[in-house]
Design a protein around this nucleic acid. Structure first.
Length: 797
DNA sequence: TAATTCGCTAGACCGA
DNA sequence: TCGGTCTAGCGAA
């Protein structure tokens, strides 16, 4: 057969079990459709370390593992290791358990890298980006990453509604009622309810079975590459699978025309399709939340749609869906609701897909995998890639025992300066850009660089006495440097073309992806389950960070500024009379001239006023402040206002007080604001939504030693039949009835308007939130509650 | 299946 | 009943 060259986008890599063994399969989007290729030349393998490799090789070749599993090939590899290959994955799994018990074998490495991930790493392929292959028929002869243009993925989202007759839907009994499907081609609703005949975008089929078949067909017709769901991992797709089983049909998904397995790993369930990338937007948002790309508390689709796009989406409850279906009234509304779910799911998917795809490319894992990864996994993929390229062995994961040893010995973190409480005017905030990464790069911090012993490297010693080589670029620091420089280039380009410029969105996604990875390195070094754990490195990073930040603070004082505060990578300076903005800029330049490598101090901005408060103990409170810049932009940090476990009434009152003081310099107005809130509370006029407190249950309800209000509220709700557990968001109100606060706490949904304990909200919510601020201006609690007292002398100098 | 440390504060809990 | 201590959650960086 003739050899052919193919170019396209790499959509997926998995493997199939064939008679000859496990065979890698690639899905490539090319010419508007997905092509499937196999690579029978690549075998599952791991590495083995032996004192006498020749002897060990002979022994391994003869050995039988499990029930008849054998190595297929043993060869010499990098670093005096042996490469042990197998015909299929299950033989490898048998062997990795037993091989270390062979007398000639010391250790095994990289035995837990999944086969298709191994392939992507070894071939250095970039999922969701370009790939070039030489093929004969469907057999891969050569493959490499390449630039490809003019090809793009088709995205779609779907959502199902199911019957739930007085209980949670059970896929064994309750049918799928309708399926909404939204793609670039428009919106569709598939159902078999005749009453919906002729409704907008609706296609009616004869039965549930035919509806499901039509859905599978639609995916193929539209050649969908990325299928977005909202919680499809745990609900929609397992449900469809179970329905198909009950109805006796086979789910067939484009492009492999195969069903799927539901992978249960620990607490998580994932549905991985073959070829088509299942992007569970719920999982993706959790992922993005971890990196601060989004900041969400409640993850139901309605809350998410509201936080991200501000659109109020209707929620139809399960009981109501049931009623609508059975009575046949309101079916169109239900159809619209179902479509709206898919629609918003697709919108979120499209918005963040560029970022996830850039990350996929960087860590060389599929979109499916990347969008469900943890920070540590991302870093691990990245490091494994680099290790492969440099011919280094990937360290094994620590045992549970090692892990707990590591956890027991923590290390010292960043420096936080106690602030000078009070109201301050004319401030400048300085901070180090990418502090931890820049320290790692500039001091070449990497585990194998520790105590190199070279004479010429002896100066490179951290304040906590860790010495790092300066001759050889470190493994971790080298990777970081690369990411850092690439990101700098991107940011430069972005600046040139402007935020609205062509391609700016992609460039921004790229630099954001790099930032996410860079920021995870330091954490990974100190993470107990890390393959590249190094307390020495992690503690050296923070030791240097403390030194640098304190250095800036000291020098600022010496230069005549008042250093008010600093936290980890920042310094807050008050600019005294006689000093100017220019002096600040000059100071920053001076500091930068003294910094090594890529370290850089930035002027974050000037602020006309700022306030720090005093703790109960009389010290200045760290990690709490409010600033206002010269354009009147307010920045509130650490205060109750930014905390979800405080009521809106307390938070809003606090924000209004801060605004009155910082923006208008008007503490009298602040007092009025507080009195107003108190008056409303006392009058019973404050609406329920202003009183709700949100707290997340961190453990099962029976595992609490101390029963706080949120636990008490949850317990009462469970008694009423509500399902709540670890991870549930408890929204509660403190009601009138009960002795302790916990007694009075009740889930918001059971509380009627007006039923709240006004004393609690006044003295435990509003007053505590504002008094710490007002106290700095000389006001007392009594001033806020009673009338009379006027502006204090000296509040504004 | 899980990136790190530092810090604040509430409300329960417990013993005097 | 009071006051100190502990549990728990969340935020900053």
């Amino acid at each position: 057969m003739e050899e052919k060259r193919v170019k396209g986008l790499l959509l997926d890599a998995d493997y199939e079990e064939k008679v000859n063994g496990s065979v890698i399969r690639l899905f490539v989007k090319s010419g508007g459709k997905v092509l499937i290729f196999h690579d029978p030349s690549f075998y599952p393998y791991f590495h083995v370390k032996a004192e006498d490799p020749k002897k060990a090789a002979a022994e391994i070749s003869k050995a039988v593992f499990g029930e008849g599993s054998k190595a297929f090939r043993v060869s010499e590899a990098k670093n005096d290791l042996l490469k042990v290959e197998f015909k299929n994955v299950s033989e490898l799994k048998d062997a990795r358990k037993e091989i270390r018990s062979l007398p000639t074998v010391f250790a095994a490495f990289e035995y837990d890298v999944p086969f298709s991930k191994r392939y992507l790493i070894d071939k250095q392929l970039e999922p969701t980006f370009g790939i070039e292959l030489a093929v004969e028929g469907d057999e891969i002869k050569e493959v490499k990453a390449a630039k490809v243009q003019g090809e793009e993925f088709n995205f779609a989202a779907f959502d199902i509604e199911t019957l739930s007759p007085g209980r949670f839907s059970d896929a064994k009994r309750d049918p799928v009622l309708m399926i909404s499907f939204v793609s670039a081609k428009g919106e569709k609703l598939l159902t078999y309810n005749g009453k919906l005949q002729g409704a907008k975008n609706v296609e009616v089929f004869e039965s549930e079975e035919k509806t499901l078949r039509a859905f599978f067909k639609l995916l193929a017709q539209e050649k969908i590459d990325v299928l977005a769901t909202y919680n499809g991992d745990r609900f929609d797709l397992p449900y469809i699978k179970e329905r198909c089983k009950t109805l006796g049909i086979k789910p067939k998904f484009y492009p492999a025309n195969e069903s799927f397995s539901v992978k249960k790993g620990g607490r998580d369930t994932h549905v991985r399709l073959h070829g088509m990338q299942h992007l569970d937007v719920y999982q993706m948002l959790r992922f993005l939340n971890r990196f601060g790309v989004v900041n969400l508390i409640k993850f139901d689709l309605e809350s998410v749609a509201f936080s991200l796009f501000g659109n109020e989406k209707e929620k139809i409850r399960a009981e109501e869906i049931n009623e609508i279906w059975e009575k046949g009234e309101g079916l169109e509304r239900l159809a619209e609701y179902c479509i709206a779910d898919s629609s918003v799911t697709l919108k979120i998917a499209m918005q963040y897909a560029p970022l996830i795809m850039e990350l996929s490319k960087l860590v060389k894992q599929t979109l499916f995998e990347t969008s469900r990864s943890s920070a540590s996994l991302l870093i691990e993929y990245l490091l494994m890639n680099k290790a492969f390229l440099e011919g280094k062995v990937v360290p094994n994961r620590p045992t549970d025992e090692e892990t707990s040893q590591r956890i027991m010995q923590s290390f010292v973190g960043g420096y936080v300066k106690e602030p000078t409480p009070g109201l301050h005017e004319n401030l400048a905030v300085l901070d180090f850009s990418s502090l931890h990464p820049s320290i790692m790069i500039s001091h070449n911090i990497s585990p194998e660089n520790l105590n190199c012993g070279h004479r010429e490297c002896r100066e490179n010693v951290s304040p906590n006495n860790q010495q790092f080589c300066t001759k050889e670029e470190g493994f971790l620091s080298g990777i970081l440097k690369n990411l850092f420089e690439t990101r700098m280039d991107l940011k430069k380009k972005l600046k040139e073309i402007g935020k609205q410029g062509e391609g700016a969105l992609l460039l921004n996604a790229r630099q954001q992806a790099l930032k996410i990875l860079m920021n995870s390195f330091y954490g990974y070094l100190g993470y107990a389950r890390s393959r590249w754990f190094s307390r020495e490195c992690a503690s050296a990073v923070t030791a240097w960070s403390r030194q640098y930040v304190k250095g800036v603070i000291d020098k600022a004082e010496k230069s005549g500024f008042n250093a008010l505060y600093g936290d980890t990578d920042s310094a807050f300076l008050q600019i005294p009379e006689g000093k100017s903005d220019e002096d600040v800029k000059k100071f920053v330049e001076e500091i930068n001239a003294s910094l090594p490598g890529v370290m850089n101090l930035e002027l974050e901005g000037f602020f006309k006023r700022g306030i720090f408060v005093t703790k109960e103990s009389g010290e200045g409170a760290k990690k709490k402040y409010a600033l206002i810049d010269r354009q009147n932009n307010l920045k509130i940090v650490g205060f109750e206002y930014v905390r979800r476990d405080w009521s809106n009434i307390a938070k809003e009152t606090q924000r209004n007080v801060i605004t009155a003081i910082l923006e208008e310099g008007n503490p009298d107005k602040a007092v009025e604001i507080v009195r107003d809130a108190i008056k409303n509370l006392k009058g019973g006029k404050t609406p329920k939504r202003e009183l709700v407190v949100l707290t997340i249950l961190k453990r099962p309800l029976n595992k609490y030693d101390s029963i706080g209000p949120h636990v008490a509220a949850a317990q009462k709700a469970v008694q009423r039949g509500k399902e709540l557990g670890t991870g549930s968001v408890i929204s509660y109100v403190i009601t009138k009835r009960g002795k302790s606060i916990s007694d009075k706490a009740m889930l918001e949904e059971y509380v009627e308007e007006g039923n709240y304990d006004s004393d609690y909200y006044i003295s435990h919510q509003v007053i505590p939130a504002v008094i710490k601020i007002m106290r700095e201006l000389g006001y007392s609690k009594e001033d806020l509650i009673q009338g009379g007292k006027q502006s204090k002398l000296g509040a504004f100098g």
